[in-house]
């Protein structure tokens, strides 16, 4: 049990150490080859682990159908789709005519429909957030109005020079805020990685942090 938790921590530590060694120090072509090889190992491991997800999906839906849980018919449909798609992909290859037809005419269309819901959700989210509740919401509302007018051709006709205001909002306060968040997030990610490398953060191996 102890080894089951210690082993992944050791693998992470040694791998991170090797990557840093070959990234920071000049080992010429050898360094590049080692990093490329490690990248390949990472891809192979991911592909093996990839199988675990679909196995869980199939097990869950078989359980739903077998136990006749509520809406089990949806699970049955999911299983049929999984089987049919697997057969199509296996027989026709990932770039085959039938496969591409299925992907282009079914999967991408459904995906596009979900993505298109963003248009409606932007309206409802904007309605909620642009209410003049407090000072921050007021600033948000004013900025949004200026930016919308600055981007639309009619804005310049109503208020001459508004496109410059919009440009200023985007390039000065907006850019400064975004860069600040990015900088903080990058350093935060950096420190989080060090916690994982040093084994201080170990919840991902199924244990308490730093226990």
């Amino acid at each position: 049990m102890q080894l089951r938790r210690q082993l992944p921590l050791m693998v992470v530590f040694v791998t991170a150490l090797l990557v840093m060694l070959f990234k920071f120090f000049n080992f010429g072509e050898t360094g590049k080859n080692v990093l490329s090889q490690m990248d390949k190992w990472s891809q192979v491991t991911s592909i093996v682990a990839f199988l675990l997800g679909p196995i869980n999906l199939i097990r869950l839906h078989i359980g739903n159908v077998a136990k006749r849980r509520p809406r089990w018919i949806h699970s049955a449909l999911t299983l049929v789709v999984i089987v049919v798609f697997t057969i199509v992909f296996a027989l026709n290859g990932s770039n085959g005519k039938v496969t591409l037809w299925v992907v282009n005419n079914i999967a991408i269309q459904i995906s596009g429909a979900i993505y298109a819901m963003l248009g409606f959700y932007i309206c409802s989210a904007a309605y909620r957030s642009f209410k003049l509740k407090n000072l921050e919401a007021t600033v948000l509302l004013l900025s949004a109005v200026i930016l919308m007018l600055a981007q639309a051709p009619i804005g310049e006709a109503i208020i001459p020079g508004i496109s410059k205001w919009g440009e200023w909002i985007l390039s000065v306060p907006n850019s400064a805020g975004m860069r600040g968040i990015r900088l903080g997030a990058a350093i935060g990610a950096f420190a989080a990685s060090i916690r994982v490398i040093l084994g201080l953060e170990r919840s991902w191996v199924g244990g308490s942090t730093a226990d």
Partner: peptide, 18 residues
């Protein structure tokens, strides 16, 4: 927002080391 997420483990566990 941003880095706040990375402080989660330290904040929630209240571990001095984290």
């Amino acid at each position: 927002i941003g880095e706040e997420q990375f402080a989660a483990s330290a904040y929630l566990s209240k571990e001095p080391m984290l």
